[in-house]
Design a protein around this nucleic acid. Structure first.
Lengths: 337, 337
DNA sequence: CTGAAAGCGCTTACAG
DNA sequence: CTGAAAGCGCTTACAG
């Protein structure tokens, strides 16, 4: 491809002038500028971003580490991040980690080597090595839908999962349910544990049974939800409600109940968490706790933008409110056994 | 961050030696290598990929242009591309175009400026300007789930949409259906039109009615499918089957039918296209034409890998076979009016 | 086995 | 308004 020298030679001027014209520098004559533009078209010239980045120490690139790009929750969050950043001229590089610790670390290394200007992180494995890498991070970063690990100081954007779980449980208990099961995420998930903590607290407060046999954890997918529901029901057929720690698990629970012809919500109510688009499908109509994904993604991008502008800045973490979305999957427990 | 000079100074050796040690060059002593490794750890040194790329003319970066990262069809395709390329040391940069013509072009410009080593493309707008950009592309490219526009010579990976539509129609007609509607994509979609062409050909071959009132096009989403089904049914309540050009449209059709309590498949059969994971949900059980996404994505990556190795290579396009997946949404038309 | 030097393609003070 | 020169952080012949 043509380079800046070719343009300079073509026009018989210096590369400095070409460079200034390309960047629309104020003190280069209009005539020169238009000559340069013409030559650029003629020679199909595109400035080399590597050279530019090397010297300017700015790549207009930000890394977005995401557990799973195919998970609708994260692809929507990513969309929000990307469109905000795009407005400001940044390109976002998705790091689709698949929740693989090695990939998470590798993404960080790559980000450093490729001189990204900033990072938005949703890691799943905050082990020592990972935190170590973060300690020496040369660019600003913000955690999204995750909390900042102890010892680090970057801001985070999240919802209060515990508070939201309390709200979900209040809804169920307010409906008169006494026998409530919990379907949760893997035990190492902070988020899953916060939601579980909310479940336990409310159950205990109301002196309702919530021993470990009422809890099934370990998954995130529809299939996991199906299997968890099956096990839960085998142990406790007296259950009239289930709190699923995310919508996918909730949908799986609904699926198992439907297969078994156990009527929802008449016999069993199900509440989810996330408010995926899927949750409003006609057959699903899942009552759930909505997390404001667009606002969260866009806010994380804003914080990062500010931090890149002023490296000394260290914004406060922010917790967003969740919202109960009532659909058809929960009903009053009164009609039940 | 520390650079190569810092390491050299720290050890009292030259940058050339450091460079060679970093790249595990055969003729540098083991002792020097281990010294360098130590210094690298001590100073937290990471080589600058911009400088490296600038000089080596290789960035180990490939661009993947995708219409919508949140569309499960494409996120799975992307996964396959990414994991194949990752094995070979490449990072993939997602270009989430949202089917926006400006974004598609911009992604191409970015790819050129940032010196990507190759491109995998799923564009939606093949206008003149776009084709022009492609003509002067300095790196190899392959089209995925798209055909190469006339005048260009890069290979493509796709399925034979027309052939697959024929197969889908054969299934419906074989089941005894005579009144079949079509729910399709926007009129400018090549893929949508190929599928529509298959529908028409088979209908005409069997002398079945397929005038424009039997066809509703213009969308891709569940919601579009719902609305199309409504319009189709309003005009032709005698329909006993519908061919939806993708699963999302098919699911929308199913949703509308369910809301109206029109039994599927007893009263109306629905066939889709894609075989999304969603299609096997208990309530949906959509019969559909499967496209082998993992194989297609991985094959596109393979072709690109080869083309990057040997720039003179120009592999042949490849068409993959689709497969009919029979679930519960289609039944024999015999019981119908 | 190691080092000095040139160069990748840009930008940016500095001088005029 | 324009140009010559230095430099960003690397790699790679070339010479020893």
């Amino acid at each position: 491809m043509a380079n800046i020298k070719d343009i300079a030679k073509h026009l018989g001027i210096s590369v400095s002038t070409v460079s200034r014209a390309m960047n629309d520098h104020p003190d280069v004559s209009e005539e020169t500028k238009s000559n340069v533009m013409q030559a650029v078209r003629a020679l199909n010239y595109r400035p080399n971003a590597l050279a530019k980045g090397l010297i300017q120490k700015k790549t207009f690139t930000i890394g977005l580490m995401i557990p799973d790009i195919a998970d609708p929750f994260f692809s929507e969050l990513g969309d929000a991040v990307e469109s905000k950043l795009f407005e400001h001229g940044y390109q976002v590089i998705y790091g689709n980690t698949k929740r693989n610790p090695a990939k998470e670390k590798q993404f960080l290394m790559t980000a450093m080597e490729r001189q990204y200007d900033g990072l938005i992180l949703t890691p799943d494995h905050l082990d020592e090595e990972f935190v170590d890498l973060l300690t020496n991070l040369p660019m600003p970063a913000v955690f999204l839908r995750r909390r900042t690990p102890p010892g680090l100081s970057m801001p985070f954007i999240d919802v209060d999962h515990h508070r939201a779980a309390l709200d979900a449980m209040d809804h169920l208990i307010g409906l008169g349910h006494r026998h409530i099961g919990f379907i949760g995420m893997p035990d190492n998930s902070f988020i899953g544990n916060e939601r579980l903590r909310g479940y336990r607290e409310r159950m205990e407060l109301s002196r309702l049974p919530c021993d470990p046999t009422h809890v099934e954890t370990g998954g995130r997918s529809i299939r996991d939800g199906r299997e968890a529901m099956e096990r839960l029901y085998a142990r406790h057929s007296e259950l009239t409600a289930v709190f699923a720690a995310n919508d996918l698990l909730g949908i799986g629970a609904l699926e198992w109940l439907a297969r078994r012809q156990i009527p929802v919500p008449q016999r069993v109510s199900v509440i989810g968490f996330d408010n995926l688009n899927l949750a409003e499908l006609h057959w699903i109509q899942l009552t759930t706790m909505e997390q404001p994904r667009p606002r969260m993604g866009s806010r994380a991008a804003e914080l990062l933008l500010r931090m890149m502008e002023d490296k000394a800045l260290n914004p406060e973490p922010e917790l967003f409110d969740t919202k109960l979305i009532i659909r058809g999957s929960c009903a009053s427990a009164s009609g039940n056994a």
